[in-house]
Amino acid sequence: MSASMSLSSRLTTTVAKELVVAVSGLALTGFVCMHLAGNLLILIGPEAFNAYAEKMQEFGPLLWVARAGLLAVFLAHVGTAISLARANRAARKSRYDQHNYVGRRSPATRLMLLTGLMVLMFAIFHVLDFSVFGHREGPRSIVEGMNGGASLGLWGVVYSSFGNPLRALFYIAAVSCVGLHLSHALSSVLVTLGVLFDKGTDRAELIAKAIGAAVALGFASLPAYVLVRTYLIGVAG
């Protein structure tokens, strides 16, 4: 047959690409979890969170290496997923008049591409927001009625941002997409990596959904906290 056994052709099949998506997705999930853990320090207070942010800065050039690595993984994930999605669309040129899905697929499964693209757009915005436009010192770091009008560092930037209900809702929508994306991805990845067999499917899907929900709720707790504090309790409270 015309099969080629060269390494490059072995690495470019759809199955190999699914593997790239899976492995990069797992790495990104790891990053998201760490990011969440760091962000949850916001709930403790400015000192804890700002200290964590300072600590990160101390890595210096290493931080840039990590950022570049993260970017590469992210691009690999997005690029490969988009290339697969395009091929998958092309695989069904003419559409059904009626196509009823009768399997176990959840809305999360169906919306993978959409949630993925939403997260992509959010990520771009998010990075720009906090690197280009967000300064640790300056007007955005000052929260009205707190710290006697002095800068609250990065904590203050975040807090002020979430104080804007539109920004907060946008953020909640974005992290919901992350959660939804993960709730399918984390069980799907087990099939791709060749470890999920029939008996475990129900449980794996349940766990994936739980993790997805936890991540989304974890992130969403931050704007929720700010909104509740700002509008229900009042800043000073």
Binding site: T14, V15, K17, E18, L84, A87, N88, A90, A91, R92, Y101, V102, G103, R104, R105, T109, R110, M112, H184, S187, S188, V191, T192
Partner: peptide
């Protein structure tokens, strides 16, 4: 020209 598996279980 077949697509890849996105684990829809259909």
């Amino acid at each position: 020209g077949f697509g890849s598996c996105s684990k829809h279980y259909e």
